[in-house]
Amino acid sequence: MSDEPSPYLHVAERIRERIVTGEFGSGDRLPSLTQLAADYGYSISVGQKAYGLLEQEGLVVARHGRGYFVGSQDAPALLTRRQGEGVTGSWRSESATARATEPVAARLEIEAGDPVMHTKYVHLLDGAPSALMESWEPMAVTGGTLIVLPEAGPYGGIGVVERMAAIGIEVGPPVERVTARTLTRAEAQTLATTPGGPVLAIERTHHDDATGRPVETADLVLPADRWAAEYGERPPRRG
C-alpha cells in the first residue's frame, strides 16, 4: 500500500504552505480550479476537494461565482445586538410579495399561502456582510398603505415600531426565541465565510398591542464569532 497522501491532501498542503508563508495574504484571490489542475497535474475535482478541506479549516472562503479567497486570520471585534432592537448599521435589502409558508403562517397566525411582504436583508460592516435577516409582514395589515415596503417610500427604513405607528398600530417589545445552530452553505456564501460555523438564530415577532395579533416576524442570523445578544437592562445605580 502506498504511503503517498491522497492527491487532494497534497494540493491542500501546498496551498496551505503558500498562505502560511505569506505568498497569499488575507483576502487574496487564490488560483482557479483550472489553474490548480495545470499547476499540480490533477483533475479539477481534486482541486475542489482541496479547497473544501481548507474551507473547513477556515483558511479559505468560497465566493459564489467569483472563486476562492484567503480567509481573514484576524479575530473580529465582537458586536452586540440588544433585546428588541434590530441590528444597527448599513443594510442591503430586497422586498417582494410572497405566499406565507406553513412555519411563517404559524408565527403570523394567518393561513399558509396568504400574501405577505417578504424582505431579505444583508447587514454590512465596513462594506462586508456580517449578519442576515428575513422579515415577513401580512399584506392584510400593510397592503395598500404607505408602509407596505419596509425599506422604501415615505416611511422606509425607520423600523417596525415607527412604521406600524404610521398606520395606527401600536406595537411593544417583540417576542424573541434564540437558538444556536450552524451556518448553511448558502448563508456562508452570502457572508463570505465557512459553512458549519456557529450562529445565533433569533426568531422575532412583533404584535399589535391592542389586539395581540402578530404584525411582523423575522429571522436574524448572527455569526457567533462576530455577535453577542444582550438581554435585560440594569436599573440605574443609586447612592
Rank of each mutant, 00 (worst) to 15 (best):
E4R: 12
S6Q: 08
H10Q: 13
R14V: 14
R14L: 14
I15N: 12
E23F: 15
E23P: 11
G25P: 13
D28I: 13
L30M: 10
P31K: 04
P31A: 03
S32R: 05
L33F: 12
L36Q: 07
A38S: 15
Y40V: 06
Y40N: 08
G41C: 12
Y42A: 07
I44K: 07
V46T: 15
G47I: 12
G47M: 06
Q48G: 15
L53Q: 13
L53S: 06
L53T: 02
L54W: 02
E55P: 02
E55Y: 03
G58T: 03
G65H: 05
G65Y: 03
Y68I: 01
G71I: 01
S72V: 09
Q73R: 11
D74L: 12
T80N: 07
T80H: 09
R82A: 11
E85M: 12
G86H: 00
S90K: 14
W91R: 01
S93K: 02
P103A: 05
V104Q: 00
E109N: 11
M117P: 00
H118D: 15
Y121R: 12
H123A: 10
A131W: 00
L132D: 00
E134R: 04
E134S: 07
S135V: 05
P138L: 04
V141A: 01
T145V: 03
L146E: 12
V148T: 08
L149F: 13
E151W: 09
A152H: 06
Y155S: 03
G156W: 11
I158P: 02
G159K: 09
E162T: 14
M164D: 10
A165E: 14
A165W: 11
I169V: 15
I169A: 01
V171R: 02
P173C: 05
E176F: 04
R177E: 15
A186L: 09
L191Q: 04
A192W: 05
A192N: 09
P198K: 07
E203F: 05
R204C: 00
T205D: 07
D209K: 14
E216D: 13
A218W: 01
D219N: 11
D225V: 05
G232R: 07
G232D: 12
P236T: 15
G239W: 10
